[in-house]
Design a binder for these strands. Structure first.
Length: 506
RNA sequence: GGCGCUAUCGUCUAGGGGUUAGGACGUGAGAUUCUCAUUCUCAAAACAGGGGUUCGAUUCCCCUUAGCGCUACCA
């Protein structure tokens, strides 16, 4: 019987969600949508020591900003709840005990210090310490201790953990959707702790129990989990859930743009690009991190960039709507190898989305900047400017800053440019031009071009000779779009005012 | 150290037993231009190394090398 596709994104609230996490969420989302399945959000907050207040809200807000709608889970409801693991403690305890009863797990009373010492000792001898069949016989656990002693320790509230009893020398040929067959031998694996002494499960136990109970069909997660795949499969077997075990897909990692290693949150502030979808302030340290949202990226561009990190549709198309991605996405086109993250390409994506936006929408995005500067918002004028200028920019903020001269007269004139273009004779020329500008009533591009060109031709002046000083007078610098466009937009009155002022300064 | 994964231009990647190894970002050059951009055109730029298999390997296999990940009562 075909089960309905159900995938989950299961972050732990230990801080902001970074690039890699968002991509994992995205691939899960795309897979769910492509297959008409459900996308769940589960919060894995079993590590009380690393819990960061606000992280959960941050994760939910980020997914929302990215447009990844959660069908079920924290913040979305559903009939498999609760979806926050800290609220499922009793469930995990019950299942951990079930494994002890069936002989697949056991109690261990070794302290962390004892184990650390043992590891060091082995290391010094050049050996590898593995808590499994090789050593468990000589350690403090219910496998070797007398039953009444175990009972006594359990009753006396001594600290204990429950460990998985890893089988000996078993060859495991496991299947991963992206990587194909992966081989392990169980003797090299250890008796992982399933249930901690603080009464919380570890990731491994909680993960398997929840995926089973929540009827997850496909586990799509980062490659860092590949080494624990055998443990997870063995856990499904131990519980007797093999027939409904999900399929696994381990995603390639996202690496630092330069240097070695996987991308970390430190890289962003260090190298000048955001690693988080939204701004985040660590409540403990007060440290602040940039976010794509606040840095002026469009969520569509951010998502588009992420989708192409490790996946491609096999065509030359690079720009996709979320819907197109849902239609096109399949796991068999996900790469096996890790990808160095390229912040430059993200800017290019943003540029593409910026120029594709309707001018009316762009104008609305410019509006807050104008208002912050106390300048009036005239929709038609702003739209006209956006249409004229958007090709040049990747960010609305840059567009606005470069176009500020349309809204307000320059407060200063770039020295380099005045030196270059306000040479001897320029002032006289500008005075003459001013007279012509005064005489013109129709300031449309076509008309000003006609009149001024005629004058330039008649006096045999050369375009550059006139337009360059004119440009510096009106804009304050040797930059910007065509001058006839500029004066059409700012209008006669403003043009004359700026000219008079510039001439006085020359 | 042990275990596992991976390997095509600087980066993201397509491809696949016989190809001029394709695209994109970035870089460089030219064109256009009143400036700055944009745009357009062009260019440089890759199959890690060694063995096999084969008429023929960049492609398939093995080894080496390199990179990455895991190796916690973190996820």
């Amino acid at each position: 019987m075909e089960r309905k596709v159900r995938v989950r994104f299961a972050p732990s609230p230990t801080g902001a969600l970074h690039l890699g996490g968002v991509r994992t969420a995205l691939f899960n989302y795309l897979f769910a949508r492509h297959n008409g399945g459900d996308f769940l959000l589960r919060i894995e907050d079993t590590d009380q020591t690393r819990y960061v207040p606000g992280a959960e809200e941050y994760i939910i807000e980020s997914l929302k900003w990215c447009g990844l709608t959660v069908d079920e889970g924290v913040g979305a409801g559903g009939d498999c709840g609760p979806y926050r693991q800290s609220e499922r403690k009793e469930i995990y305890r019950e299942y951990a005990l079930r494994l002890v009863e069936s002989g697949h797990a056991y109690y261990a009373f070794d302290t962390a210090e004892e184990l650390d010492a043992l590891r060091k000792e082995c290391e010094n001898r050049g050996e590898t310490f593995i808590y499994n069949a090789a050593h468990r016989g000589s350690l403090k656990n219910s496998l070797v201790m007398p039953a009444d002693e175990v009972r006594r320790l359990l009753d006396s509230q001594a600290h204990y953990v429950i460990r998985f009893k890893m089988p000996e020398n078993e060859d495991l040929l496991l299947h991963d959707i992206i990587r194909g067959e992966v081989h392990f031998n169980s003797s090299l694996l250890d008796d992982k702790v399933l249930y901690k002494s603080d009464g919380m499960p570890t990731y491994h136990l909680a993960n398997i129990v929840d995926d089973h109970l929540m009827r997850i069909t496909h586990v799509i997660r980062g490659e860092e989990w590949l080494p624990s795949l055998p443990l997870h499969v063995l856990l499904y077997r131990a519980f007797g859930w093999e027939d409904t075990m999900p399929e696994f897909a381990h995603l390639p990692l996202i690496l630092k743009p330069v240097g070695n290693g996987k991308l970390s949150k430190r890289d962003g502030n260090k190298m000048g690009f955001p690693v988080f979808p939204m701004e985040f302030t660590d409540p403990a340290t007060g440290e602040k991190w940039h976010g794509y949202k606040e840095d002026g990226y469009f969520p569509e561009a951010f998502i588009n960039m992420l989708a192409l990190l490790g996946w491609n549709p096999g065509t030359d198309q690079e720009i996709f709507t979320l819907q197109e991605l849902c239609d096109l996405f399949t796991l068999d086109r996900v790469k096996k190898s890790g990808a160095k993250f390229d912040p430059e390409k993200t800017k290019w994506f943003n540029h593409k989305y910026l120029i594709a936006k309707p001018d009316s929408e762009l104008a609305e995005l410019v509006r807050p900047y104008l208002e912050a500067d106390g300048l009036p918002y005239e929709p038609k004028k702003v739209e006209r400017i956006c249409a004229l200028m958007k090709e040049r920019y990747s960010f609305v903020k840059d567009l606005y800053e470069d176009c500020r001269f349309f809204f307000t007269a320059p407060t200063e004139f770039v020295e380099k440019d005045t030196k270059k273009y306000w040479k001897e004779g320029a002032k006289e020329l500008m005075c003459e031009l001013l007279e012509i500008l005064r005489s013109i009533d129709d300031y449309t591009f076509a008309n000003t071009e006609k009149v001024i060109s005629a004058w330039i031709t008649e006096k045999q002046l050369g375009f550059g000779k006139v337009m360059n000083p004119f440009r510096v007078a009106i804009i304050g610098a040797a930059k910007g779009p065509h001058m006839f466009d500029v004066i059409e937009i700012i209008g006669k009155e403003e043009t004359l005012r700026r000219m008079e002022r510039a001439i006085a300064l020359m």
